[in-house]
Simulated assay, not measured.
Amino acid sequence: MIFPTQYSMLSTEALKSYLEEAYGLNNLGCKLLIHNVSDTYLLAGVDDKYIFKLYRDSHRKLDEIKAEVELLNILKENGAKISYPVTDLKGGQIQSFNAAEGIRNGVLFSFAEGKPTHDYYDSRLQTIGREMAHIHNITADIELQNPRKVYDVRTTLIQPLEYIKSEFTELPEEYAWLQSTTEKVVEKIRHFDLSKFSYGYCHYDFLPHNFHFDEHDNITFFDFDFAGKGLLANDMMTFYVHFFFQVMLKKQSQEEADKNFQTFISAYRQVRAVSEEELAAIPYLGFAFWVFFLEFYQLHFEDWSNTFYNLRFKKERMGWIRNWVEWYCRF
């Protein structure tokens, strides 16, 4: 009898053999890159590279994985510059493994050439803007057959705030501030005419670690793990989080950050319209983003965040959230 298990690690040698047979590949090495929310492996040979992502069932159910694969196939078919699912010799794109804790599912992805960077000169910002808008032109007009998470006031603010309450007993003043600020943000969001906002499938994590530029400044987006239905302004918001960090770490002035963000927005508008009201909502959607991730850290504490999600982390993160609100939100 196998003792009950909640998060196993598959053998890289066995995985390499399985994937080579399933996809008709040869002479590839297999290396574990990341073991946290899910497992990410690099399969690399002399000429070929792939990324294999192995999900945890407690994080992504099979229907959600099917939806991600469906979304990426649609994006690829419409010319979006993304890392896409690779089809195996039997015509499938999802692999299933009978692991110690039960069935785990995984997907082999094309390799995103290049590397992440924080060096955003104008042409790169313009590329990000145009290509994000192109993705939104696609995702605003589709309905996936399988379910993905919905990002709204309930799922990013009200529900997370209640869920994290038990973990803030040592920080009662901080939790009270989160409560009062959440009330203000919810009211602010509800005052926007959301019926005029663009809606569709957003990436919800458009930060620099999720896209690469190669040596010719070609871009590839990847890691659509958080993709779900919501306001498309959420993707502009998550990219703006990058500039928030740049200012907070004193790598840019606020003026420089805003100028760079405007360059990105101007390029986005060459491909897709975005209203001033949608841009005005970014600070409040950003607060929701921070609260959503506090819930995410707690939800996955046993399998991932236990190494860092402690009192010190919460105090630091609350400092960031307070900065965000003080700098950008107007009540």
Rank of each mutant, 00 (worst) to 15 (best):
Q93Y: 07
P116W: 06
G79M: 03
T156I: 05
H59L: 10
E70P: 02
I164V: 14
G129M: 07
D39Q: 13
D57F: 07
L43H: 09
A80P: 02
Q93N: 14
Q93P: 02
N98V: 13
A112Q: 06
L43Y: 07
E143Q: 15
R104E: 12
L72Y: 03
L72D: 04
I128L: 11
L62H: 14
G102F: 10
S58E: 09
K61L: 14
A112G: 08
S123K: 13
L72Q: 13
G106C: 06
P147Y: 07
Q95S: 15
R154M: 08
G114E: 04
T156L: 04
V86N: 00
N26K: 15
A22L: 07
K149V: 14
G129Q: 02
D152L: 02
N27C: 02
V69E: 08
E143A: 11
S83F: 09
F97C: 05
A22R: 15
I82L: 02
N78I: 01
T139Y: 08
N36A: 14
L25V: 09
T40W: 01
K149I: 12
L125Q: 03
A112Y: 07
D39C: 02
I94T: 09
T155L: 00
Y84W: 12
D119E: 12
R154K: 14
K61F: 09
Y121I: 10
H134D: 04
Y163S: 10
L157T: 02
Y151V: 05
D141M: 10
I82N: 03
L75C: 13
Q159V: 06
K49A: 00
I164T: 10
L62Y: 15
G129V: 05
V153G: 00
K61D: 14
I94G: 08
N105W: 10
L28F: 13
A22G: 02
R124F: 02
V86R: 00
S123D: 11
D63L: 11
E21V: 01
D152Y: 03
A99K: 00
H35D: 13
A80G: 07
C30L: 05
I94S: 08
H59N: 08
L19C: 06
H59K: 12
T139R: 03
L32P: 03
F52I: 04
K61Y: 08
P85N: 06
D88L: 07
Y163A: 13
I142K: 11
T87A: 03
L71E: 01
H134S: 09
T87L: 06
H118I: 13
L25E: 02
K90T: 15
D122N: 12
H59D: 03
K53M: 06
R56T: 04
G114F: 05
L72A: 08
C30T: 03
E77D: 15
E70M: 05
A67I: 11
S110P: 09
S110Q: 04
L75R: 07
P160W: 02
I65N: 12
L54Y: 01
S110T: 15
D39M: 06
L75T: 05
H35M: 00
D39N: 12
K90D: 15
D141R: 14
A44C: 09
K49G: 00
E20G: 07
K31F: 12
K31Q: 15
G24W: 10
T87Q: 14
Q145D: 15
E162R: 11
T87Y: 03
F109K: 01
N98Q: 13
H35E: 09
Y50K: 01
N27Q: 13
L62M: 11
T156H: 01
G114W: 06
